[in-house]
Nucleic acid binder design. Sequence first.
DNA 1: CGGCTGTACTG
DNA 2: CAGTACA
DNA 3: GCCG
Length: 834
Amino acid sequence: MKLLTPSTSKQVEPAFLPPDFNASSGEGSLSLSESDNDIPEKKWKISPEKWICAKSSKVKHSNLNSIITEKLELLILLQRMSKDSMTEENNDCIKNLELETKQVSTDTKCVYCDDEEHGEHGSKKNTKCINLSEDSTDSGYAWVILVSAFFLEVLTGCSLTSFGIMMVDIIDSTEQRASNIAFIGALLSSFLGLSGVLLGPIVHRFGCRVVVFSGSLILALCCLTTFLVRNVIVYYFSMGIVSGVGYSCYQLGAPVAVSHWFQKKKAFSLSVIMTGISVGSMLWGPITRLLINKYSWRGAVLIIGGLQLHGCLIAAILKPGPLLSKSLLEKKRSSRFNKEILKNKRFIIYCFSNFTLLYGHVVPFMMLPIKAESNGISKMNAAVLVAIMGACSTTVRPLVGYLGDKAWFDKNFVFGIFSILGGILTSASFYMRTYNLLIIYACLFGMISATYIPLTLSVAVEIVKKPEFIANGLAIILTVHGLATLVSITAFGTLDYVQLKNNCEKDTVFQHFTQSVHIQNALATTYESTGDRWRTFSYRKAAAAVKRYPRPITSFEEALAIPGVGERVANKIWEIVETGGLRKLEELSNQEDIKAISTLSGIWGVGQTTARQWVSQGIKTLEDVRNKAKLTRPQQIGLKHYDDLLERMPREEAGRIDDFVREKCLGIDADLVILCCGSYRRGKETCGDVDFLITHPDGKSHHDLLPKIIKRLGSFLTDHLVSLQQKGGQSKYLGVCKLDEEGAKHRRIDIITVPRDEYACAIMYFTGSAHFNRSMRHLAGKMGMSLSEHSLNKGVVRKRGEKLNPGVPLPTPTEESVFKHLGLKYLPPNERDH
DNA sequence: CGGCTGTACTG
DNA sequence: CAGTACA
DNA sequence: GCCG
């Protein structure tokens, strides 16, 4: 085995080599004498000196035990200390190490077996040595185990990948500082590693089946908790600490299980499951994004929790194998922490450099989706970036492993160069704002990090030199990695581009930046009360543009350059950035009348005109309205539910309303097509109302449908605001509903029924957003067309806004067709916010 | 200077 | 027709 | 109030 016979006796060959190397290396050099097959326990405790002795030059058979022992000890240490799970690379190292260990034990043809009775360990009885017949492993059920273990690792890959993807949405919906949420990720990654300390003995005691099973349940429970509870402190546990432990179970379980079943092809099998985690991290990004788009991030968490329950299935498949290496794990660890290592100045310096390296390394992984999003890249594409990074890192890693073994390969050099490259690249990434550039960044960074991260450990081994310190040294390095991860993610959340995304930051520039959005909107509202419709329009537009703008505004000119922001608004933005306020707004909004107007126009059915009229008549409070004002029917209802109707409902509630209405409608006619549109369809976390679009596939049964539906919904609809028959066959109902639940509030509900051939345009319209509809209609207008909720018409002739020729409808069977006619790429509902 | 989405009910 | 609403 |  080449591993144990390095080219020079001085060079300590690091324990981290790629599986393919081990797999392909000859077995011959290590064949052992029979006597090694029966190894008494004591013999396993062998000093590190013997290990290195075995490593340098010729292998002494009698020392092989010590090699195995030492490696296992290292393994234990690594498993405890490592899993800088951000990057999985360390795990790979562990697995490589583990695999190598297995290889050794395989080669010796000495395998430990253990009756899978849980608990009764600690005595020699349990540990016996057998000569294996080769057919009992590597085939048959072993392959089932391999596939299961592979999928287990795929499930593990979910951990930080999906959290990274989700972070943006979590920040949005919890309105927490980004750093608070990022801290969950830091906890997750730390506990993924830390829990190895606890799990090591537990895997040993209860077997990997039990551990994987519990891991699965733990994860499912965590996800359920996250789904149900709306409290960030709880998330620290449910998504951070406890989830970390859960994933740790998977992570430990898979290689252990496989090592129980594979003998000859152990190296191969371990490399297979190793790729599992990479495949997992590639897959989970897009999957998570899709789930979030469809069900919001809470829903996604719940579904992921469900998916993690597959771990139970896998646990059931993972029956104890004929080979059992875990009994080896139980050996008492002989190496204690040796302070001598701290006298090695090179090593200390190396530790610091590793800290800074990892400090910088970890952030891009976790923050990439946020960075992408803050630069206006769609969430799905951000997820794709993560997948790309994963893929690149996956492809390069085996290559590095392969090259790492070559004599001419200068690890120190490569490590140095690539870590510097990674640093430069990441610094440069600050200026990468377009999707294409970020793709390149993801690719390069994935590849570069796949190079230097595994090498950190190899280089450490070379620096430590003294064999008795290697275990300690590696443990220290891995601790440093873990620490760096924790510190960097926590710290970083408060520093860089994360803030740009957020609107709840207290930091000066950023605060002013977000405040400006707020104030612009306030100004818009204020002007609305004054009645200047088009000024309002412009403020709204400018506010939206500023909100979209991915960076803090640092100069007047920068503000002016934003489309939709002119000189006057730029002046105001600059005043906000510099002083934190806007005098004009304060003047205006301190006027009692203006406050009154905005209060009154909160009543459904009361607009600017009515509100202003009332105020001028001295009606300034809701109480005044109740007593003095003349109210229309809808306004009375609006006043009755004033507070309820101004409140937005959580997405889940909209979902329950959807279920209820859907069931009732299908009771009328099972063929009806019911779609809940509006902000719900766009995947928003809260909804101001629920919008139902209903049609019948036969193209005619939508006639007279709406009254039936309203009748059917009965007391669910508490008040009717408007119920109208439109000319073209569309009917619209606006009303108020309330679920039959404890503490349920009144909610606005809109229902429209449309003819089949207007369905696509109606969906477009009813899904919105309002602003998106305006843009689409504006675009249609510029192209000589006209878009409405009924149809997309072409050949429209307009003259000074007036339509002279209504044009002819284009065929629009689907939403896609509408986009196509307008020369646009299809946008899924969740991307129609602008 | 003139447009800034397009449609439809209520009173 | 003006006012209000829907996305 | 912004933009063409």
